[in-house]
Design a protein around this nucleic acid. Structure first.
Lengths: 220, 220
DNA sequence: CTCCTGGCTGAGAGGACGCTGAGAGCGCCA
DNA sequence: TGGCGCTCTCAGCGTCCTCTCAGCCAGGAG
């Protein structure tokens, strides 16, 4: 279980980290809203602990942007204020719970457990690349809003590419993640074949060839 | 949205009811743990507000028994105590959130909204998928408004699928939830057989096959 | 222009996957 | 005890998917 802690009070952040590590969580720490947002967007976290009052970007703002980017990681808001409207605002912005400082580690851990428990069915993120939308939850692929049938292999390949949209991904990397892994050698031609299948079903432009390097799904 | 309020302080219960009705919720009230549990088990609620200190059965006990009976309606615990261990206990028992009395209606409503939003798929009283309607209360299935007889197994399978309408559900997951669970292996062919039965009774289109991934009930 | 390398694609074998009909076992009821 | 409905197993069959192979095409270097 990976937890991201975003708090500018370094002492508190370190205490949280220590406490959570002792509970068996893997913990990353950021000290301002900007860095926090970046980490939250990129990293794969199961939960985010977010201070409300932060430099660069406020906690509110971080949650708003996260949700706007369709990242649904559960967020537990930490706040020193305790006016009721702050709480209500935070929850309405898309936070999943909040805790007023000072709080005890016991309560925090219990709340985290409750969040993770119900988070059992996290909304899977829908990935976009160009005119193509990939939804891992419903296992549907849309081209210009129209559903297109793809096979399991094709879906796996497309998912991997759109998940890394904008980046060049080598055939070897694709082969390792979508087909057998780790045995080093296999015939990479199968990757080319499946790229071909996808292009036929979804249009030439869904996957660009980068000669000598690999393939790339356009980032938008 | 149906909400069940269980609280033995009648004045507070009535105030909650009035406030929530004004917000557009349908509200039922019970005044002790026994009656509350019974209502929660039988009725289809989207949310339960549960006092911790109750006659007959405590709030703890009610949540425990609800979860033991595999009823996953979100529970918001109300408590007059504020020792941290109470909170932690309640959350560990399976409550989804708690609120310490006295609280304001603004905060309560915001918390309710947050709970319903993540709602862990709030279970509507009647589930629809395509031309099929499934009513867990009466255990009836309608196709184009006409009642169709289904057996217990068939009903369980159909319920699970329509409850996750739009999502692809693997045969293994279906097997685990509708047949024996947790022993990992069993013959998944039985799932195919029952999908076949349902299709014969309700029409081919009630359940889509997603080759290599599982089955899906159309989302509308 | 020619050669060479890397990428693309049509055809087809083999296999995995899903569907179905037949029927056995079991519990319930008359 | 016989009949009935429900549940589940099994085996066969057809379909679709996957992957290999061989030949072709395109781009880049000289």
């Amino acid at each position: 279980m990976r937890v991201l802690v975003v708090d500018d009070e370094r002492r508190l952040a370190r205490a949280l980290q220590a406490g959570l590590v002792r509970e068996g969580y893997v913990v990353d720490v950021r000290h301002d809203g900007g860095a926090g947002l970046e980490a939250a967007l990129g990293g794969e976290y199961d939960l985010i602990l977010l201070d409300l009052m932060l430099p660069v970007l406020s906690g509110y703002e971080v949650v708003r942007r996260l949700r706007a980017a369709e990242v649904w990681t559960p967020v537990l808001m930490l706040t020193a204020k305790d006016g009721e409207y702050d709480e209500a605002d935070a929850l309405d912005e898309g936070a999943d719970d909040y805790l007023t400082k000072p709080f005890s580690l016991v309560v925090l851990v219990a709340r985290i457990r409750a969040l993770l428990r119900r988070g059992a069915v996290p909304r899977p993120a829908v990935m976009r690349s160009g005119a193509v939308e990939v939804d891992p939850g419903t296992r549907k692929v849309l081209r210009d809003g129209k559903e297109v049938d793809v096979t399991t292999r094709e879906f796996a390949l497309l998912s991997y590419l759109t998940h890394h949209a904008g980046q060049v991904v080598s055939k070897a990397e694709l082969y390792e993640h979508v087909w057998e892994s780790h045995d080093g050698s296999g015939d990479l031609n199968v990757v080319e074949v499946y790229v071909g299948y996808l292009r036929r079903k979804l249009g030439r432009d869904v996957i660009e060839t980068v000669r000598g390097a690999g393939y790339r799904a356009p980032s938008r």
